[in-house]
Amino acid sequence: MPLETEARAQIRALVAEFRPEHGDLLAAMHSVQHHLGYLSSEAMEVIAEQLGLFPAEVYGAASFYEEFRFTPPAQTNIRWCSGPACRLKNGGGIRDAILATLGLHDIPGDTEDGRAGVILGQCNGACELAPMVWLEQPSTHRIEFVGNLNAARAVRMARALRDGATIEASIEETKRA
């Protein structure tokens, strides 16, 4: 039996309502990530105990999905919409411009100081705003929608985030001509 640390007890409380063989694994993983920002090895062990699975089964499932992450999230994530309406309006250029501005090579990726990250977004059908990104703050669950972007606006926004600006100030940057 692993030592019952404070962190472990906290995770245990987050998944206490879930049961084995009840289709609860996704809900358990969502619950932990929602509150703690990511799935630590310890969290996956606790989830496995709770649901009667091996930790490898939990990791196997978690790693299958785009949403779950295994390291703490950046302060602010730019969720880049990969949908077709956005792509027709230079979504690809916007992605490349954001990555270059933050010094990243691929999605998902975080800056070294953990200020900003870029994650993959899927179309949710607000295509009248294409091309768009979402700005997300995992610690507060705040989400802001930034539509009608172009590459230049995206560069200004990403530079602001990189340099430590708030979400509001970063969005303001996209409104300059």
Binding site: D96, A97, V155
Partner: peptide
């Protein structure tokens, strides 16, 4: 050049 179009935007 990465062809992002930021220059032609401004």
């Amino acid at each position: 050049c990465i062809h992002c179009q930021a220059c032609t935007d401004v």
